[in-house]
Design a protein around this nucleic acid. Sequence first.
RNA 1: CGGGGCGUAGCGCAGUUUGGUAGCGCGUUCGGUUCGGGACCGAAAGGUCGGAGGUUCAAAUCCUCUCGCCCCGACCA
Length: 521
Amino acid sequence: MPRAGCGMLPTPRDADPAGHTTMNDKADKITPRAEDYPQWYQDVIREADLAESAKVVKGCMVIKPYGYAIWEKIQRDLDARFKATGHSNAYFPLLVPQSFMTREAQHVEGFAPELAVVTHAGGEKLEEPYVIRPTSETIIGHFFGKWISSHRDLPMLVNQWANVMRWELRTRLFLRTTEFLWQEGHTAHATHDEAMHEVLKMLGVYGDFAEEMMAMPVIRGIKTASERFAGAVETFCIESFMQDGKALQAGTSHDLGQNFGKAFDVKFQAESGELEYVWQTSWGVSTRLVGGLIMSHSDDAGLVLPPRMAPIHAVIIPIFKNDEERSRVMEAANRLAKALGDIDISEPRARYRDFLEVRIDDRDMRPGAKFYHWERRGVPMRIEIGPKDLEKGQVCLKMRVDGAAGTGKQFLSEAEFLATVRTRLDTYQADLYAQALRRRDERSVTLDTWDQFLDVFKGEGSTFAWCHWDGTAATEAAIKAETKATIRCVPLAGQGPAPEPGRCIKSGAPSAQRVLIAKAY
RNA sequence: CGGGGCGUAGCGCAGUUUGGUAGCGCGUUCGGUUCGGGACCGAAAGGUCGGAGGUUCAAAUCCUCUCGCCCCGACCA
């Protein structure tokens, strides 16, 4: 069966009259993005061996080792950033007394439909059911109440890495699963100003992380009331642009005001001697980030990873025809791998060391099959070493995605290669960011008429649309009802087009600035 | 919860209309030959056909009841 091919790569075997191929007719194929984007997304995850649906547990996923390694990269870097901003990790129970969930009115209302409840344990019906945490504001509020009594106890800055469960009706690997992994930061402060400062600081941490480490450009903004976290006074977010034009909320940071302080009676004695409720914040990112990473950079040949998120940076493919060549080539491969593995590729500002991860693929397979194997997994660099290279003292280098500078295989001396590896990875990282940013900006539009709007969002259509909005929930709901597009955020200063007055795209009422509208995951 | 679809080997499927005791491709295992873009030959392992009940000499196939999953709509990091 002749295959459609893998994007820009030549597939000579397509011409094989016998139709021989090692490809499974359906299972190994990556559907092109243009043909079926959601199917492409699933194919990339399967072929890169990142995760699979748990099947036996509705809506849940198994994160496989290679996918989990990416999550570990995310965790390690964010954790260091949280520590650097003064936060400490802690851990709170998975189960939350049901009565806790009902203390804050908006919070119950928002989460009630998606709670899983434990009613029986130890063979008996529980006196009070537990809910499996959909988030931990309530139980942490309870403990903050016990821990905080004086302004000297503030600020309280904790974070927890945990799993949570939300009974979603429709799930997608990484983007929305019933159970997911995340971190949730929870802080308490003496003043609203201080809490607001925290909220924005952590939004900044998320934005920097997304752009510097994931090479994923984001828009920082404020959620509208209807998109706000249940129980928050204000929700801030980072929104990223996926290749199909949809938006992904990649992180949120909430100003909780005194809502949970009042619900859980978290009071402190101020310097003045007065008892006051604390001002709280919470902020989180989840395994959804992995989905965002996939959709930001990957192509029709499979996963593409920025080096700072890649569990493996380089793979060496030995090439030989017989045992004599094999031993010579393997010796050179081992030597090169050792040298590469010693290269420190740490991000300059990071508080941890990062060394280049390299693998030698010595499996008994054709080299071509190995090329495809590692390409699908998004490994940034491939190095081929064969007898010809040994003769010439060179290595053959192929980057997973060809930068603007050149395409295809490059041949360079081993010394030159080793000396430039670090730079090449940094350039590659920067190129992926630039490409993602260009893609987003080229496809962002400013719209001024409802007809234009309908044209953009008809059917499955979506892109980043900057539009005037009259600020009312009614208009927002009308836009969503008619087009499925939603207001992703009101951009913070410098995050969208410069503010200019105009008229609402839907109602025609006056508006002070444009907001970001798109369909969302 | 409504509408649609599907459960047969690890994966993808055929077989069901017209009952006759399960097959194909890929993968896997073993042996050999191969190896600069998805190799080939030979041998082998692997299935109580989602489950329960019924009809029949005989059920993957017909009947009844169940369970599960996927897709589409209403909610969401």
